[in-house]
Amino acid sequence: MTVIFGLAALLAFLGGVGVVTSRRTLYAALSLVLNMVALAVLFLLLDAQFLAAVQIIVYAGAVMVLFVFIIALLAPGAEERVRPLELRVLLGGLAAVVFTVVVGRLTLNGITVGPNGQLHGGLGPFNPVTVNAHGQVQTLGEQLFTTFLLPFEVTSVLLLVAAVGAVYLSRRRRPGEEE
């Protein structure tokens, strides 16, 4: 278990480093795929099967296809090497630390880890202990399709708007406007 976690975490890290250090945008996009697939493995390790599926099907699949097509549409050359801005690096590091602390604090809210790695306690109806006992896909599905029925149905309207927007954005120019 620890070996798989270490391997996936390392690949995710390498993918992330590849995204920011690659000078060719396409290589950066491919590094992002590596990062996303490794994250999906980490989600599986956390028993979040639905998130893993979303990560692979939507992010590593559809979103990356869009990224690659946008790169092909813009056809950029290699990025020029610029000196990294110290302030940007500093702020990025600060954001990473704050994010990790906040998310970690929220996740571990009232939860203690037992000697064999099992979790105890936890506040609220939906904490890692109760959710994992019931199954993450089951918990998420039950909430989504009953309590959050309206937002779920509104999502389809949102997707409808997205489809209309996509058609509008890439509409054919009238003759004469052609490049």
Partner: peptide
């Protein structure tokens, strides 16, 4: 680009 955007919509 259009194909990819529509793919995302129906993928979601």
């Amino acid at each position: 680009y259009l194909t990819a955007m529509l793919f995302i919509v129906f993928d979601v």
